[in-house]
């Protein structure tokens, strides 16, 4: 998996994306704007996983947990009359702190990569159980009633109007991808890539690999928390389903389908898979899960690297140079 280096063309691509994001709401119906907004929120979540998994090789099934915690933090603070802005910040902190704690135990305890994947999944499922068993109104944080499997409703939105909210989410995704790409090309990002390839070698050069892994994992969790807070704000509800096995796997599937390691692939994967799920749901087929399962299996078999890397390799094989 060759690290993609920034080319001179990349800022042009950024510019094009910025223009598309800016004018898109004018070309779409309000319903479509709202729909695409949630796709972009999932793109944020997918990119957050790609930062830890694609760049540093840290596979986590806990991205849904950080996402859900961010959403609950947002909902709880809003219910306690904090401003949506402060609640959004709390969502970021919740995701980051949760990832930081898990990461600290895993990395400083020198636990294996497999352990990280299993632990993050187990923690997510524990959160599903715990929040699911808060149906009794006595479970509340301040004025926020957790509501068990029914979750929390009537969560106020960050921005009530669809188009400004779309621009906010799109702008955040844009910023995340651009700064993530710059991070990947920076020395810190190169050290993370080196850790992915051979961690021992990095340590033998004097780098503390644990600290580097913890930093990117916490950052990744914070971004997932941001996405979760935006999600709660988008729909006005949150329930423990965000901690389900399906949700945890979904994030990994997005990144697998799009192709990991470039950030673009993760965003493309999340967008396409969610758009497809939406489409299958809208034509009323009962086989959405079946089709998605078949899609995943065929990706693993035919394009194990994912869409974007396969596409780029196709371009270079017909004579268009990468880089």
């Amino acid at each position: 998996m060759a690290p993609v280096r920034l080319s001179a063309l990349e800022p042009l691509l950024w510019g094009a994306c910025a223009v598309v994001l800016a004018v898109l709401p004018f070309a779409l119906s309000t319903f479509q704007v709202v729909q695409i907004t949630v796709f972009l929120i999932f793109c944020l979540l997918a990119v957050s996983l790609d930062l830890s998994w694609g760049l540093a090789g840290l596979l986590s099934f806990g991205q849904a947990a950080f996402f859900g915690l961010g959403g609950y933090a947002y909902a709880i603070l809003c219910a306690n009359d904090e401003t949506p802005g402060a609640a959004l910040a709390a969502g970021i902190v919740a995701g980051g702190v949760a990832a930081g704690l898990l990461g600290y135990i895993a990395f400083y305890g020198r636990l294996s990569a497999m352990f990280l994947a299993v632990t993050t999944l187990v923690v997510t499922l524990i959160l599903l159980q715990v929040l699911g068993s808060t149906a009794d109104p006595s479970y509340h944080i301040g004025a926020a009633v957790l509501g068990g499997y029914n979750g929390m409703t009537n969560i106020p939105s960050l921005l009530p109007e669809p188009t400004p909210f779309f621009w906010t989410v799109g702008g955040l995704l844009f910023l995340l991808i651009v700064s993530g790409r710059l991070l990947m090309a920076a020395p810190f990002g190169r050290v993370l890539a080196a850790i992915r390839e051979n961690e021992r070698r990095v340590e033998l050069l004097g780098y503390d690999a644990r600290w580097h892994k913890l930093a990117i994992f916490a950052l990744s969790g914070a971004i997932a928390g941001l996405a979760g807070a935006l999600f709660a704000s988008w729909g006005g509800f949150i329930n423990p389903e965000v901690f389900s096995l399906a949700q945890s796997a979904q994030v990994v599937i997005w990144v697998l389908v799009g192709g990991r390691g470039s950030l673009y692939g993760a965003a493309i994967g999340a967008f396409l898979v969610q758009a497809m799920t939406q489409y299958l749901g809208s034509i009323g087929t009962a086989y959405t899960t079946l089709v998605l399962g078949a899609l995943l299996v065929s990706f693993v078999l035919v394009m194990p690297n994912g869409l974007l890397p396969t596409f780029l390799r196709g371009l270079s094989s017909i004579g268009i140079r990468q880089r």
Binding site: A2, P3, A194, E197, G206
Partner: peptide, 30 residues
């Protein structure tokens, strides 16, 4: 290992341990 490396011991292990996905330049730079 990282603290010993900082004190000034470098090592090449028996099994070549390099970063296959990174360039030669990046190895030396890092």
């Amino acid at each position: 290992p990282h603290r010993i490396a900082r004190l000034g011991i470098g090592i090449k292990n028996q099994v070549p341990s390099v970063w296959d996905g990174l360039s030669v330049y990046e190895h030396f730079f890092i």
